[in-house]
């Protein structure tokens, strides 16, 4: 592989844009096809399909074998609330290669001392989230318990195609949340996208255990087509 090609592939990933590297197995010839350029490629249909599945793989066309290295943007985890659970969640999520950002307008919580490994934005979610452009490779978790902070973030997540939305709080808390979101015009099926109470039921007690259950649920949503039972 030419270094320039490798460099271009890495640049696309850093910019959160999908791309496919096409390798002609017999000749070793390679080309990079950016998502926006797929329609004009001779293998457009195959590239589209592999990208949709998010899977690399071999294909055959005209008696030639091509390997398609599919590169989707890194999963982004937007954590609303610079709380104790988030402190445990941030390093774990980084460990599974998620791109983590913490958002909390309360400056006492949102400090770099509390979150040494990840970006922390001491701003309101409704100001921050539009800048991110929540895409289908994004998960949003709302952990503040405070409707003033959580609700606007959930509203934006529901209007996006993000793959996971979770909200912390008991069933009672969630009932009240459902009511507020309904009043705000969201439908039942919109609201059903929210995982609440958040996290897999592993009987978690401590903040770190709750972080494990949340991360488990996010990964389960990301990999749902691979799960044996869903």
């Amino acid at each position: 592989m030419r270094l320039s090609l490798l460099s271009a592939l890495n640049a696309e990933r850093a910019a959160r844009r999908a791309a496919v590297l096409v390798t002609d197995i017999a000749s070793g010839e390679q080309r990079l096809v950016r998502e926006a350029e797929i329609a004009g490629d001779p293998l457009a249909q195959e590239l589209e399909e592999k990208l949709r599945q998010g899977k690399s793989g071999l294909i055959e066309q005209g008696g030639n074998q091509f390997f398609l290295t599919v590169q989707t943007p890194p999963v982004r985890l937007l954590v609303i609330g610079a709380v104790h659970i988030s402190q445990a969640l941030a390093p774990m999520a980084k460990g599974v290669d998620f791109d983590v950002t913490i958002v909390d307008p309360r400056t006492a919580f949102a400090t770099p001392e509390r979150f040494p490994d990840v970006p922390v934005l001491a701003e309101w979610p409704d100001e921050v989230l539009p800048r991110f452009g929540i895409d289908r490779y994004t998960a949003v978790v709302a952990l503040t318990h405070d409707p003033k902070i959580d609700d606007p973030a959930l509203g934006m997540a529901l209007r996006s195609e993000c793959f996971y939305i979770g909200a912390l709080g008991s069933r009672k808390t969630h009932e009240r949340r459902v009511q507020r979101l309904t009043d705000a015009g969201f439908t039942e099926s919109d609201i059903a996208r929210i995982h609440a109470p958040i996290g897999l039921d592993i009987g978690a007690i401590s903040p770190a255990e709750i972080a494990v259950s949340i991360l488990g649920e996010v990964v389960a949503s990301l990999r749902k087509e691979r799960r044996r039972s869903a």
Binding site: M1, K55, G57, F67, T69, V70
Partner: peptide, 16 residues
């Protein structure tokens, strides 16, 4: 760079 391009059966690492 080595890349897994095809797997059969219970392969430990996925294609790609």
């Amino acid at each position: 760079i080595a890349t897994v391009v095809e797997t059969w059966g219970s392969a430990p690492r996925p294609v790609g």
